[in-house]
């Protein structure tokens, strides 16, 4: 359970995040949407304990994030950034094994690595040099790394942050990554994802937070939130909403 109150982050004299209250429940993917510069990634970093807000507070399971020890936090909270470039060449399974660093000394690192690679669908990349993989494959190996970091953590205790995980990926890779995250959420984990694709968000998220200029525009389930009116308020462009005849969901297309 993640909770935050009166979060304010100011950079260069501009308030890039200003959120009076927020609460994120486990069990479904919580999506953060909004145009570039809306403060999505800043919010994610604050909630993940990567940076402290200038004022306000965030809690993980009732304990202020500032009071968590880095090691304890790393043993139950993982963050998948948009893109990672390795400083030195490593094989895919070596990258995944780095996810076990917070658990050093605990049993079964090889099992954790193998299980995480299977779950992320990259078991076949074992032995490959990470730098020679495609962007989508690299991102899925990184997903396996964060899954390995959470391996052995009770689902209800594990928290997964995805910071624009699917930007710059092709369709199959986008869906593969979101499907794995959604499955983790269904198993009881808390999953928070910053996304750009409205339809991808509608498909995989339980709850959406729509932001603009560091502030909340709207929050709610995708079907209620993704209306042409709210999207216009956040992004400033006109959209049309059409029902998905097959799945009963909604699709948004430019008007």
């Amino acid at each position: 359970m993640i909770r935050a109150e009166n979060l304010i982050v100011t950079r260069g004299g501009r308030r890039i995040l200003d959120l009076p209250a927020l609460s994120i429940a486990p069990g479904g993917v919580f999506g953060i949407l909004g145009p570039n510069g809306a403060g999505k990634s800043t919010l994610l970093r604050v909630l993940a304990g990567e940076m402290a807000p200038d004022s306000g507070r965030a809690w993980l399971d009732g304990r202020p994030l500032g009071q968590w020890r880095a090691g304890d936090l790393a043993r139950r909270r993982a963050v998948l950034p948009q893109h990672s470039t390795l400083g030195f060449p490593l094989r895919a399974e070596e990258v995944v094994a780095l996810g076990r660093l917070p658990h050093a000394g605990r049993a079964g690192p090889q099992d954790s690595v193998r299980a995480a690679m299977r779950e992320a669908g990259v078991a076949h990349l074992q032995g490959r040099n990470h730098a020679t993989l495609s962007g989508g494959e690299q991102q899925r190996v990184q997903l396996a790394r964060v899954l390995a970091q959470l391996d052995g953590v009770p689902p209800a205790d594990s928290v997964l942050f995805l910071d624009e995980p699917t930007s710059a990926l092709d369709l199959p890779h986008q869906h593969a990554i979101m499907a794995v995250a959604a499955a983790r959420a269904r198993a009881g984990a808390t999953v928070v994802a910053v996304l750009h694709d409205l339809n991808l968000a509608a498909r995989y998220c339980e709850t959406l937070l729509l932001m603009a200029s560091g502030q909340r525009v709207a929050e709610g389930p995708p079907t209620e939130l993704l209306t042409p009116e709210t999207v216009r308020r956040a992004y400033g462009i006109a959209m049309r909403r059409i029902p998905d005849p097959e799945r009963g969901e909604v699709l948004l297309v430019p008007a």
């Binding site: 993940a48 990567e50 880095a70 090691g71 304890d72 936090l73 790393a74 043993r75 909270r77 993982a78 963050v79 950034p81 990672s84 470039t85 390795l86 400083g87 030195f88 490593l90 990258v95 780095l98 996810g99 660093l101 917070p102 050093a104 790394r145 970091q149």
Partner: peptide, 20 residues
Amino acid sequence: VRGLNALILGEREAQTLGIP
């Protein structure tokens, strides 16, 4: 060793792996 290995992934990644 642990910290330097984590840094191969990147500074942000190392930080979220609990490296001071």
